[in-house]
Design a protein around this nucleic acid. Structure first.
Lengths: 192, 192
DNA sequence: CGCCGAGTTGAACTGAATCAAGAAACGTGG
DNA sequence: CCACGTTTCTTGATTCAGTTCAACTCGGCG
């Protein structure tokens, strides 16, 4: 299977994994599909799955009273999950929903992942490296949010994540940058 | 030694550690002290140490051209490091400096930590759990920065990290919240 | 004692939000 | 496959929160 290969590859980038370990892991994966209107993970729910995205795009939404704020997107070839809920076993403050009309993924249950940590050579190491990656992502986002004004944010996004700008509706991009859709629209038209 | 005990305790909170593992780890720790004017980690330097703070307060400063922005503080009993540089082995975009006149720490070199990962039972697991914690911290800060206005930021800080407000100069607090000292001063006087 | 950095306060300014209305794009069902 | 309704995007006018600039006070330190 092609997308299973993609998962293995993303592991191989992190660590050398024996075939035995891989087989052990692969056994525990399940496949699933979501439609645009589905809610992949709900507010308040304890996240029980770590997903690997094979088709479509999803977004992470912050549970604010009034306005929908986007904290993250995931693209094919990437893992996603309401990760802080997944690792802390506490209610999710994020909701995860499809951006595209169809979303295909594999997923691993929480307990399965703990089994992998216990029963494979490289499990813990992959877990550590993955967590370190997630940390770095949030860490650079902190600097991004803390130091840039709307225009600078858009320019940096344009440079570093152009695929986002190409494929995500403007209003979601705006909420990801922490600005209003009107402001983003004006910035965009002032540039090109 | 009392502060060595604090380190072991912070491990015990994460995982059950054998005495053997602890001795192996403890051997690799060094002790050091900084004065207020010292620079603990410089911009552009590759962070080579993971510190454990036993006395004083330090702050993490973001390398922006004009204004000094604070991304984090560390207090006694906590680990600190220019963590993204430490794990990626790339130049630090943060500078770490003392807030207080004296800062005492233990530290572990990068290579020593890799030895711990390789040669102890629980090394990788501690590493993973630590990285997961760091992730969660940045993750909640993302929501904080993305969704709150200055007044809300201050109120949340007051509620969740009062020790920060008590011990950190206003201008550094302001830069940590992403607002100007004037605004923070006004907010503060409008509240009490 | 005098200096310097930190904090406060006031006034003016400005960038982005808000409010509003119209145009374009989208998807949904007949 | 078209037509309609809904959502998304754009554009303009207005408002306002927070910044900037400036002057003054206070407290600690040399």
């Amino acid at each position: 299977m092609d997308s299973l290969n993609a998962i293995r590859k993303s592991f191989d980038q992190l660590v050398t994994m024996t075939d035995d370990d891989w087989f052990y892991f692969r056994e525990k994966l399940h496949q699933t599909r979501f439609k645009r209107t589905d809610i992949i993970t709900r507010f308040g729910q304890i996240e029980n799955r770590l997903y690997f995205l094979t088709r479509g795009i999803v977004r992470h939404i912050v549970n604010t009273t009034s306005i929908e704020t986007t904290s993250d997107f995931a693209f094919p070839g990437q893992f996603f999950s309401s990760y802080s809920s997944f690792i802390s076993r506490r209610p999710s403050i994020y909701e995860i929903r499809p951006v595209t009309s169809e979303v295909d993924c594999y997923y691993l249950g929480y307990d399965s992942l703990q089994d992998v940590y216990l029963n494979t050579q490289c499990g813990e190491k992959i877990g550590r490296l993955a967590a370190e990656q997630q940390f770095q992502k949030k860490s650079s986002r902190e600097v991004f949010l803390l130091t840039l004004n709307p225009r600078e944010k858009y320019l940096q996004l344009l440079e570093e994540q152009p695929h986002l700008i190409q494929q995500i509706p403007l209003k979601h991009l705006a909420s990801y940058l922490g600005i209003t859709p009107e402001t983003l629209s004006r910035i965009r038209s002032s540039i090109s």
